[in-house]
């Protein structure tokens, strides 16, 4: 297994801060623009997540839905995404990139072909929102075989027994969903409760890198600094929407936002 994701966490830990992880939708609002955004924000990022747009995203809130819609309107296809990943990795080979999407897109492309393409394009990890434990066992193995980190999710509703099984079968990174919601809604739980859940997961296996996502914004990010990593997605997508609406450049606006986010956790 190559260690780009682990290294990113180690580097952040050395600086005594959580890893900053962005989520944007590949192809939002165009193929080139989405790459420009990622290139521009990557200096402040530890890991980049790129969404594979799907037109029936049942776990996403309005902001990511809008981003996916724009990307699809502009004709993004899975093969384009692999090409864009390759272009990104060419200039930033050590920056880990994780693709995130719904299983239908992988199923339709063919699991094996999909993984092979991920590998040759330089994808470091995968998050498949609707392929949960134990249904993901075979797919996770396939990822492992190809040195791709399969990131599993743990939700506030996940039972302790299940949590242990998920952690046992997980690779180097685990994604903790902060609150019972789709992406991008406000945090329903207190910061204290989220941190408590986080610590509970960490205690089960301290060596896993656990990141917190869903509902993380400029306002909440500094309170969650103690995590191994923090994912900001909808807040960034919202900024792209706002920029496009106000006829401003999303690249500069999103870069400013990510810089601000970074400043809040150092």
């Amino acid at each position: 297994m190559k260690n780009s994701i682990n290294n990113a966490f180690k580097a952040a830990k050395k600086e005594n801060r959580p890893a900053l992880i962005s989520y944007t939708v590949c192809g939002d609002n165009t193929k080139d623009k989405s790459l420009q955004i990622l290139n521009s924000i990557s200096k402040d990022l530890d890991i980049a997540e790129w969404g594979i747009p799907h037109n029936c995203p049942t776990a996403d809130g309005k902001d990511i839905q809008n981003s996916s819609y724009r990307a699809l309107q502009n004709g993004i296809r899975l093969n384009d995404i692999f090409k864009l990943v390759k272009r990104f990795k060419k200039t930033k080979p050590s920056k880990p990139i994780i693709l995130m999407g719904y299983y239908q897109m992988i199923f339709n492309y063919g699991e094996k072909k999909f993984i092979r393409k991920c590998k040759v394009s330089g994808v470091d990890g995968l998050i498949v929102v609707d392929l949960s434990f134990p249904d993901n066992k075979n797919f996770a193995k396939l990822c492992m075989k190809n040195s791709i980190c399969f990131v599993q999710l743990i939700a506030p509703t996940t039972t302790v027994k299940r949590m242990k099984e998920i952690i046992r079968s997980s690779h180097e990174m685990i994604y903790m969903i902060s609150t019972i919601s789709t992406t991008g809604s406000a945090l329903k739980y207190s910061i204290k409760r989220i941190i408590k859940n986080y610590n509970f997961i960490k205690k089960i296996k301290p060596s896993k890198n656990v990141v917190i996502g869903f509902g993380i914004t400029e306002k909440t990010i500094s309170n969650l600094k103690s995590a191994d990593g923090l994912v900001v997605g909808s807040a960034i997508c919202r900024e792209i929407t706002r920029s496009l609406r106000d006829r401003q450049n999303p690249v500069t606006n999103v870069s400013k936002l990510v810089r601000k986010l970074k400043n809040k956790i150092i």
Binding site: T58, A59, Y103, Q104, V129, D130, L131, S132, F133, D135, Q152, L153, I154, A155, P156, T157, T158, T159, R162, I177, I180, S181
Partner: peptide
């Protein structure tokens, strides 16, 4: 069939 859903829905 199957259960292709978000982790949050599994327990419910």
């Amino acid at each position: 069939g199957g259960n292709y859903c978000a982790e949050t829905m599994r327990k419910p």
